[in-house]
């Protein structure tokens, strides 16, 4: 197990270095003048140009610049936003809980519905249920989620008036920020009205963001289950007189979930990327919306920092998935 983890780390560290290189190169790959791009000033005088070059540290040799960038990044200094002059790290940390809360709800939504649906489809193979689950999940898998989100708003918010159109909580509530997650913060204050408001704001974004992971999980669970149900040990378990529920729920599921856990981990990336669209549509103040705005404003330090942090999170999640994979799979644990 430890050897396995060390091996995984051995792959992850070069990947992380690669990402810092990529992010570092980003600003230098932009056509035109990085000084103009970073300062947001156009057609400046030569003296001002040289001044800024020095200010951004761009006058030093590239390896020095890179070492400096990584050194600062590891310390948590990702530079300052050109637009707001705030530290990028602070802006990121302010917004991350919103994205985290949304992504967590979305993955729970996907797991709670997707995995049972996949199991059911596999168990009732070639039945109406199977075809139904598979058709719906194929449609979900192919759905442009920005459009799907609009349809959800149009139906549930505009037509039925059940849920709010955008934002995280109604204006009249202003819970004190503890974790940054509205559901938790409102509960900590004991304000159930505010909690309900936060929850109702979460429902549509959760569905929109969770749809693709849900569809993927349902498909994967079904195929993993079908493969496992054909294994010898399932037949042997039946031959020992175990009930179908026990055979499917204990013997088959345990094995089928091993690949499914990997898929859940991979979906975290999709969720963070999908959050870009979902957050833009629902005006959800998370990192996705923040980064899109930064690109439109050419706020490059924010773009760099956002990419670096998102990639780091994805890498960390992959590591956690590897650990989980090792825990559920005895062939790796031992």
């Amino acid at each position: 197990m430890i050897a396995f983890l060390l091996r995984r780390l051995g792959v992850l560290i070069p990947t992380f270095i690669g990402i810092t290189l990529l992010v570092f190169a980003l600003i230098r790959l932009i056509p035109g003048d990085p000084v103009e791009a970073m300062s947001g000033e156009r057609g400046m005088e030569a003296s001002r140009h040289a001044e800024l070059l020095k200010e951004f540290g761009l006058d030093r040799p590239l390896p020095v610049q890179y070492a400096d960038y990584v050194y600062k990044a590891v310390k948590g200094d990702l530079g300052r936003s050109i637009v707001t002059q705030e530290p990028v790290m602070r802006e990121f940390l302010d917004r991350f809980p919103a994205t985290f809360e949304l992504a967590l709800c979305a993955i729970i939504f996907a797991v709670v519905i997707g995995i049972p649906a996949g199991i059911l489809a596999a168990f009732k193979r070639n039945s109406v249920i199977d075809y139904g689950v598979m058709s719906v999940s194929l449609a979900g898998y192919s759905m442009p989620i920005f459009w799907w989100a609009l349809l959800l708003i149009l139906f549930f918010s505009v037509q039925l008036g059940w849920t709010p159109v955008s934002g995280r909580i109604a204006i009249e509530y202003d819970p004190q920020v503890v974790t940054g997650m509205m559901l938790v913060d409102t509960l900590l204050e004991g304000d159930f009205e505010a909690f309900r408001s936060a929850l109702s704001h979460l429902i549509l974004p959760t569905i929109a963001l969770g749809t693709i992971p849900l569809a993927t999980l349902a498909r994967m669970t079904r195929s993993a289950m079908l493969e496992v149900l054909g294994e010898d040990y399932v037949r042997a378990a039946r031959a020992r007189g175990l009930s179908p529920l026990r055979v499917v729920g204990r013997h088959a599921l345990r094995n089928a979930l091993i690949p499914v856990i990997t898929v859940i981990g991979l979906q975290v990336g999709t969720l963070l990327a999908g959050a870009i669209l979902t957050e833009t549509i629902f005006s959800w103040p998370g990192i996705g919306k923040w980064m899109v705005e930064a690109i439109h404003r050419r706020d490059y330090p924010v773009v760099q920092g956002g990419i670096l942090m998102t990639a780091t999170i994805v890498i960390l999640v992959n590591l956690i998935v590897d650990v989980c994979y090792g825990i559920v799979n005895p062939r790796i644990r031992h």
Binding site: I19, L26, G269, L271, L272, A273, L277, M291
Partner: peptide, 24 residues
């Protein structure tokens, strides 16, 4: 393969957005 790992570590839409950030 390590280069590909770097590309894979970024969620696909985010990577596309990053490339657009460079290219415009």
């Amino acid at each position: 393969m390590r280069c590909m790992d770097v590309l894979m570590a970024l969620p696909s839409l985010l990577l596309a957005v990053a490339v657009i950030a460079i290219l415009g």
